[in-house]
Design a protein around this nucleic acid. Structure first.
Lengths: 354, 354
DNA sequence: ATATATTGCGCAACCGATTGCGCAAATAGT
DNA sequence: ACTATTTGCGCAATCGGTTGCGCAATATAT
């Protein structure tokens, strides 16, 4: 536990120079002679001088701090998204400060306010599930701090957003299954208050409408708490004896669905095909590997950070909606309706024999 | 994009008071009359005043900033650990700033230095896999910034560490299997350069030694890259026809092991029992749910943050090694040797019939 | 009514840097 | 040799607050 930090003043005193000269030497200012610069650097080194950024940025209007507010450290997606943001942020000499709102609007409000206290240069916000309007962001707008809403967001004409192409992904997933002969598909969706859930469901619906396939309400599972999933899934199986494929909207829903299928002895893809939207991690450690529409968290993070830094540095106020495309990754969890029918009948005797 | 922020000076001018009075009013200083305080608060509110923390903490020696450096945003453990840290940090009116070293010692060094620039009040450090010594932390010690090493660390007599009781957990896992008749157990371990791997292996070894059970080198899998796991696992099965149980040292190793077992048609626990050390998330979405020694990332985070804040606020320099105990969570992935033998023979004909 | 205490507020220094401007000494130009 | 530049450095203001101390006005004590 050592004491006071060395300041410019200390170095100046040591050398019999002014703070100004020391400061400029360290900043490699052209006004200072090479010889002096060298002496200053040596002494600074020797005294192990550490610049004080709070003092430094007190004058400058910026802080080189970017704040990220997430509702929770979900084990899926968020980590890779943070990694992506971090990479870009650090490469541009900013630092990232991460806050967690615990899915509480009260916390979120508090944190947004705190960002202004810190004079963050920009804010990245993944909305909490409780957030229904964006009034609490006005304060950021007032003081000119750019904001980007990403991943989980709500409709807004005021802020730039970065999301994946949710509706399209929902549609593609459904179509992929339909193309393989599945007519009775169940979709597992999250909390309907979230735009992300609503959009993916919308796409799922549209795929059915476009092919004029009926879509009963029992084919749509709306899971708010993971514990509800089991019962809903049972109900769906009961209501649709010909159920041959399932679409899980997120990784979290996927792994739990996958688990419940295993538990009820439903084989993938022999009995039921499975597809999801994912960043690709979970699908590779589930057996069989799950076919999915991939949206890279890393990419979302990187793109978003780039845009934000652009806004900061060019003081741009242009608002846009960026939709990141998903790409289909075909793995082993989907079979055609025909294949499934075959393997199911051939297995039937064995199953009954138990 | 609005302009300048409102400062104390602006409020003072507006009210015809001094900055001092305004500052003290907002801080609820006893010297100021209730009436004045009220007026100041109203105007501050009306002008939407935002305090500038960088200016405020320039005088104070502290910043109420706690830095966390992690090697990567692993999808397992780290998120819940961060959540735990965050909770405590926020409850104590600090904020957490998270950095990622990408498992690079160079980055780690840079980030540690950056913490001093920011005048962080304390640093939490999960070492990168490249870190072999702790010299780069001297600079923190010099300026009196307390540090805690957590989770992934190396031996040190200088810094406080918080880890789980790795050796003990490794031993308990092995014993749990042995108690159920398993004599030929394979352990899946991570990179041996990491203390965490070495300790867990040590415990695993000790369990064998204490029961005088032989432990061949082929029973120990050392996985540096996840892609190596498959081949190593095959080799182990080949070398040990009587292999009846597997211990996976971490979540990541667990999910991949689980996947590979499913892929080779090895049933859990009918053919092979499975146990792991985990924070409890992965075990509940794998089928069957995996018996594990639970170490809560949340708890590690909370405890660590508490200790750090204690060090900061009491200027304490006491160094300690905190070991957080794991608790056994028995789920469905372990059967006794006898049960396994039974289900295996009874299944044999079915299997061959294919 | 006078001495003392309290109340309410402002002056000015300070935290640790950055920066516009001025100024003396050294160098260059004629 | 004398003016015009250039070179190298320091003064002092500034960023936005906090805080020790002083001081006048009011309240209380005697």
């Amino acid at each position: 536990m050592a004491g006071k930090r060395v300041t410019l003043k200390d170095i100046a005193a040591q050398l019999g120079l002014s703070m100004t000269t020391v400061s400029r030497s360290l900043a490699d200012h052209p006004d200072i002679s090479a010889e002096t610069k060298e002496r200053v650097r040596e002494v600074a080194q020797a005294m192990s001088y550490i610049p004080n950024y709070r003092a430094r940025y007190l004058r400058a209007k910026h802080s080189r701090l970017i704040a990220l507010i997430v509702p929770e450290m979900n084990m899926f997606f968020i980590p890779s998204m943070i990694a992506g943001i971090n990479r870009v942020v650090q490469a541009n000499d900013y630092s990232l400060i991460v806050f967690q709102s615990d899915n509480s609007i009260v916390q979120e409000r508090r944190l947004v306010e705190y960002c202004t206290h810190l004079s963050a240069d920009g804010v990245l916000l993944v909305l909490s599930s409780e957030t229904a309007d964006l009034q609490h962001l006005d304060v950021l707008h007032e003081v000119g701090i750019p904001v980007i809403l990403l991943d989980k967001t709500i409709d807004t004409a005021k802020y730039t957003t970065v999301t994946i192409n949710d509706e399209e992904a929902g549609r593609e997933a459904a179509e992929y299954l339909m193309d393989r002969g599945h007519t009775s598909v169940v979709g597992v969706f999250g909390d309907q208050r979230q735009r992300i859930s609503a959009m993916r469901l919308k796409g799922f619906r549209r795929a059915h409408a476009e092919r004029a396939l009926p879509l009963a309400d029992t084919q749509i599972l709306r899971v708010t708490l993971m514990s509800e999933l089991e019962e809903q899934l049972s109900r769906a199986f009961a209501a649709h004896p010909d159920l041959s494929a399932i679409f899980a909207m997120t990784d979290e829903l996927l792994v739990h669905t996958h688990y419940l299928l295993a538990r009820r002895g439903t084989r993938v893809p022999e009995d039921v095909s499975l597809i999801s939207i994912s960043d690709g991690q979970a699908p590779t450690f589930l057996y069989p590997n799950v076919t999915h529409l991939r949206h890279s968290g890393m990419e979302v993070g990187e793109r978003t950070a780039h845009i934000l830094i652009g806004m900061i540095e060019h003081n741009s106020d242009a608002m846009m909606d960026v939709r990141i495309r998903t790409t289909l990754v075909e793995l082993g969890s989907v079979a055609t309706r025909t294949e499934q029918a075959k393997s199911r009948t051939s297995r039937q005797p064995v199953r009954d024999a138990r």
